[in-house]
Design a protein around this nucleic acid. Structure first.
Lengths: 100, 100
DNA sequence: CTAACGTACAACCAAATGGTTGTAGATAAG
DNA sequence: CTTATCTACAACCATTTGGTTGTACGTTAG
C-alpha cells in the first residue's frame, strides 16, 4: 500500500498512469513528453511497476509500458473501505439524533 | 494531489485516518496507540491536515482530531477518472475486435 | 559492418521524509 | 499556587526521493 500511494504522489507519475491506461507507450515515447531526462522517466516507470500500476513488456529494442488495472483496483478498494467507515459513522450519528 | 496521496503513503497515517473517521481522538489519544513519540504522531496528523484528510479543533487543552471527508472524496474522484479511462480503452478494444 | 536508437544501471546531489530529543506555553487538576 | 497534562515547535539525524550525468549493452537501420 505504501508503494501504491507513494506512486500516485507525483504528478508526472499520475500523468504517465493516465496515458498508459488509455494506450501503450514505449519508455522513450513517454520520456519525450516530459521536460526531464530519459533516466528520470525510466525511474518513474520503475516506481509505477513496483506499485503494480503499470507493466513493461519487451518488444524488439523497445520496452512497452501499459496500464495495470490491479494497482488501481487495490487503491480503490482501500478508499471504498474508508468511505464505508464514514457512512457507518454517519448512520450512528443519525441514530443518536433519532433517539434524542 | 501530491500532498493527498503522499498522506496515504504511510501505514501509520492510514491507520489514523481509519480511526478518526470512525470517531474523534485527541492528538495524545492517538499518540498512545503507536510505538513512537508524541511529536512523531503530531507530525503525521499535520500531514493529514494539510492533505484535507483530517481536521483539528481545539477543545480545552486538547486538540480534537476528526476525519475530513473532503480529501477522501478528492482521491476517489481521481481514481474514478482513471477507471473511466480504463473502461473507455476496454470498449475501444472490444470495438476493434468486433470489426475484425 | 557501422551507426543510431532504446534501454539499463551506477554514481552523485539537493531536498524531503520520518523519526528523535529538548524546550516552552496553555490549560486543567490537586 | 503548584504540578501535571497536552500541545507546539525547533534542531538534529538517517534514509528516501527525484533529479542529473555517464557508461555499457542489445537491437535495428543504412
Amino acid at each position: 500500500m505504501d508503494r501504491l500511494f507513494q506512486a500516485f504522489a507525483d504528478s508526472t507519475r499520475r500523468d504517465i498512469v493516465r496515458r498508459v491506461t488509455a494506450r501503450e507507450y514505449s519508455v522513450s515515447g513517454l520520456a519525450a513528453l516530459y521536460a526531464m531526462s530519459f533516466a528520470a522517466v525510466q525511474k518513474h516507470v520503475a516506481v509505477l511497476e513496483r506499485a503494480s500500476l503499470v507493466t513493461k513488456e519487451k518488444r524488439g529494442r523497445e520496452q512497452i509500458v501499459r496500464g495495470n488495472h490491479e494497482g488501481l483496483e487495490k487503491a480503490r478498494r482501500l478508499l471504498d473501505e474508508y468511505e464505508h467507515i464514514w457512512r457507518q459513522r454517519a448512520a450512528r450519528m443519525a441514530d443518536i439524533l433519532a433517539e434524542g
